[in-house]
Design a protein around this nucleic acid. Structure first.
Lengths: 222, 222
DNA sequence: TCCTGGTGGGGGAAATGTCCGAGCACCTCC
DNA sequence: GGAGGTGCTCGGACATTTCCCCCACCAGGA
């Protein structure tokens, strides 16, 4: 028990991928010295990385974002798709918002900058192997900032509307005409008009253009 | 060096906060047995948690979200504001999107569900002490999904449209009628109609409802 | 029973969408 | 300098759709 906590779980088998020989060899040496991880392969580009993953079936792939022959994001996507048991941790010098989001969206379980120390890397690798995601603090804050600027269905705006009216609103926002809405809901066009009018008067809307904008702001249309 | 990697960094001093005595005592016992962390205090509510943090100045506060006398989110905010050297890791049974975002926004460096094992908790505490953020894999995916659903003006969709047409589109999306657009742009309504028609045929739109949706998706309306 | 929500209809005013044609300003190319 | 293209500006006429205001019926729940 104490042992398991000391090593913080099973020692993950890791494949590295970085096009810069100095960084790659440095990581191999550094991580090879540590008991927390086991390096089973090192690739110089994305293509080679995928081959090594296929060959060794590692627990984690530690990959650089900028690489020749398929970059880190693409490699991450392919690894996650073809070898779902292999988690991916991204290690990069360039920590801009786009690459962070792209990498995590592609399925990366971690995102480290190259100023991370050996302990941080080992922790991230172990966490990834266990299905946890580790992101450098400052980057995580950016991620949260990006996430909280979203609008996840403002039920407040919708209150007062009946379920049917919300449904009609959704279809209006999708660009359907009254006739099409009638067909979709299998009711007469007159009924649709009634719902639309109730909707407008309740929400203070004048026409369907405003209704579409309202629906988008309320978060029921994307 | 090997030693530092084995412990994955300095052993963090931790204060716990959970209103359920069973969980609290269980965590104290469990984490107390492990060499990776040092538990220096245990609180039963948010007020007491802040007091213990002030008293012990721990590296990390491990806090439950649902607590009497100030909940986890509020506690996180106050700890981060008053004791910036103390990081916060949230441990909760209820992992809905709202609480996740609220906690991370409040400054939490980690977010774990209570099905996490001891290893996962220890890793998260150590990472937090080092400024890294650890989030359960599935939750991180939701976070990323929320973050990537942003729309930063897709110029691609807009290409082919003239500046005037984009301007008209923006006004349509704002809910203005043709008459109002004419007044706003100080042109005749006939001119507006011309722009609108060009806009529709270029973008493959049928009516202004679709145009509003198009504008929102293109990111020129919020 | 009353009220709410969903369904249906009619008719008229208003706005929207569609098709023409046309003048003007600006630019580039020859 | 002229020719041609593009963008912005207007106008008319017309069909379609939307919007608005009435009305009514029925089912289910407070």
């Amino acid at each position: 028990m104490a042992d398991s906590a000391d090593s913080a779980g099973v020692t993950p088998r890791v494949v590295l991928a970085d096009d810069q020989a100095v960084v790659r060899e440095g990581l191999v040496t550094l991580l090879g010295l540590l008991p927390g991880v086991e390096v089973v392969g090192a690739a110089a580009d994305g293509v080679q990385a995928l081959e090594l993953v296929a060959e060794h079936q590692p627990d984690v792939l530690l990959v650089d974002l900028r690489m020749p022959n398929r970059d880190g994001v693409e490699t991450t996507e392919m690894v996650r798709a073809q070898h779902p048991k292999t988690e991916v941790v991204v290690l990069t010098t360039y920590a801009d918002d786009d690459s962070l989001l792209a990498a995590l969206k592609a399925g990366a379980r971690g995102f480290l900058t190259k100023d991370a120390d050996a302990d941080a890397i080992v922790r991230a690798l172990r966490s990834a192997a266990a299905g946890q995601s580790t992101v450098d603090g400052a980057l995580q804050q950016r991620l949260v900032a990006a996430a909280t600027s979203r609008s996840p269905v403002r039920t407040k705006e919708l209150e007062g509307l009946t379920a049917r009216e919300v449904e009609v609103l959704r279809l209006i926002a999708a660009g359907l005409s009254n006739t099409e809405i009638a067909r979709t809901l299998v009711v007469s066009e007159a009924t649709v008009k009634t719902h639309v009018n109730h909707l407008f008067s309740k929400a203070g809307l004048r026409d369907r253009a405003q209704a579409v904008a309202f629906a988008y702001r309320a978060g029921i249309a994307e």
